[in-house]
Structures are given as C-alpha cells and as structure tokens.
C-alpha cells in the first residue's frame, strides 16, 4: 500500500519534472550562448499549448500532429522574438536585453489574455488518461506518454548537439563567440537555431502539460517558466544534461514537498533557487566559467 502510493508520487514527480526539464533546456541553451535569461520562454511554452489545443479542438488533428504543430509554432515564435527583441541589443548594456525580454513576456501574456480570455480552455475528453496496470503498480497512460516523449526529445537533442555540424557550431559558439566567428561559424544563424530548438522543446512541454492537466490559459507559463529556470540553475545554467537532471529533481522535490505544505507548493522551487545560489551557485553539474579579462 505504502509502496504503491510512493510509486505513484514518484511517477507524478518524474512526469512534472520531465516537463520542467524540457522548459529548462530552452533557458539553458539560450543562456549558454547569449548569457540572457529569456523571460519570454514562459510565453513560448504557453503558445505551444495553445497551438496544440487549437489543432486538436478546431482542426481535429490527432495528438502527434498537435504536438508537432505546437512545437513548430513555438519554434517560429522563438526565432522571431530573438530577431526583433534581442538581436538589436547584442552590443547594449547587460540590463537592456533583460528588460526587452521581460517586455516581450508581458506583451505576449497580455495579448493572449485579450485574444483567448482569462478562463482556462480544456482539451477534449478523448485525451483523458487510462490507467495501465503493471502487476501491483498503476501508471496513467498520459504519464507514460509524457515521459516517453520527453526522453525521446532529450535523446534527440543530445544527438543533435553531439553528432551534427550545427550542434558542433552551437557548442563552439557557447564556448567562445569571437573565436567561433573567426573559425567561420555564422553566429547569427547559430543563435537563431538555438532559439528554434529551445523554443520547440518549450512548445512540446506546453502541449504535454496542456494535455496532462487538460487545460491551457494565458497565464499558464508563469510558474512553469520560473520553475524551468530554477531547474536550469539547479543543474548548472548553460549545462544541457544539468537542465534535464535539474528538472527531474525539482519535479520530485515539488511533488514530495507538496505532501507536507500544499499551500506553498510553488514556494518550493524558490527555496531551491535560494539554497542553490547560496551553497552551489554553479549548480549541480555546472563548471565554473571564468569571465575572460
């Protein structure tokens, strides 16, 4: 009995955590290259959920197609945001792109509020969960779906970064922009590509969470966005495996923490952030990067 409950909580934690991990990847990839907290990432995630929702409800597409559409929508949005709101500020003071990012976030959130209204939209019923029985443990089919898709996406990202030319260019750019440029890497393209991939992952998280909780609303990005960032810092900002691990740990911490203080569930991530900043600011897997002087 205890074991069953415990197992169910672990599954909840991993499911939640894998969506945090997907969001965290977007933050970490962008931070790795531009040293910018992309505040608009929460709204990129929210956009993914809405695109997926529209595909399912309006166009009656199956889940897989909705997921791809959500990813594509977020991907395009991410690239456009970078072009319009961040690229002109590459040479500006450090605080300028940060303010621009927060501006984009506020803009998108409230534009969505005007378009869709504040109430949450539900996904249709055929997306609800069936319970799968494995002997004496039960897993919801949705949880399994989310876990499998998250893992596949992360494997895909890993291959992309380590086995392809553009992945190599991304790693080089993250390490040293000037040198990468001297080596003939086209920085602007690499940055666009980074936003594209990171945003697509965020969009996937949006669709998955939308289906999981059976709802999408314009403010839905706020807390997952914050938590995705905390997960990225927890793993070591700029570190891709770190973002995955950080997401899972945060998801588990939140689920088990909520058992004791459900009112302050959202505070757990914040407490984690403060603890990390105090005791291990480089994160669990981050290496200390020395600013070149």
């Amino acid at each position: 009995m205890f074991f069953q409950q415990f197992f169910a909580q672990v599954m909840n934690g991993l499911t939640l955590g894998s969506t945090y991990a997907l969001i965290a990847l977007g933050y970490t990839m962008v931070y790795g290259i531009l040293e910018l907290i992309n505040f608009a990432h929460s709204e990129i995630y929210m956009t993914g959920a809405f695109v997926g929702l529209i595909m399912v409800t309006v166009y009656k597409l199956p889940f897989a197609a909705a997921l791809l559409a959500g990813m594509a929508g977020s991907c395009i949005l991410g690239v456009i945001i970078e072009k319009i709101a961040y690229r002109p500020l590459r040479k500006a003071t450090r605080i300028a792109p940060l303010i621009s990012a927060i501006g984009v976030s506020i803009f998108l959130q409230n534009a969505a509020l005007l378009v869709f209204g504040p109430q949450a939209r539900a996904f249709p019923a055929n997306f609800s969960a069936a319970a799968l029985n494995f002997g004496f443990v039960q897993i919801s089919s949705l949880q399994l779906l989310i876990l499998v898709i998250s893992v596949l996406l992360m494997i895909g990202l890993h291959l992309l970064i380590h086995r392809t030319k553009i992945g190599q260019a991304m790693r080089a750019t993250a390490q040293d922009k000037e040198t990468a440029q001297l080596m003939g890497i086209r920085i602007d393209r690499v940055i666009s590509f980074t936003f594209a991939i990171g945003s697509a992952l965020g969009g996937a998280a949006g669709v998955l969470v939308g289906v999981y909780f059976n709802s999408a609303d314009p403010m839905m990005g706020f807390f997952p966005g914050l938590k995705g960032f905390v997960a990225a810092v927890l793993g070591g900002i700029g570190n891709i495996p770190g973002a995955m691990v950080g997401g899972l740990i945060l998801g588990l911490a939140e689920v088990f923490g909520a058992v004791y203080m459900s009112q302050y569930k959202d505070a757990i991530a914040f407490a984690v952030l403060i603890l990390i900043l105090l005791f291990k600011p480089t994160g669990l897997m981050g290496r200390r990067i020395q600013e070149k002087v």
Binding site: A85, P97, G103, S105, I106, Q109
Partner: peptide, 18 residues
Amino acid sequence: YRMVFYGLLLVVMMIVRP
C-alpha cells in the same frame, strides 16, 4: 490594453531609445 502597451513599451524603448 494597458499591460500589452507596457510590454511593447519596454521592448521598443530598449531598442529605439534606451
């Protein structure tokens, strides 16, 4: 539309007249 305007304001000011 106020918040939409605030969001735009932040972006536009940073780019056009920081």
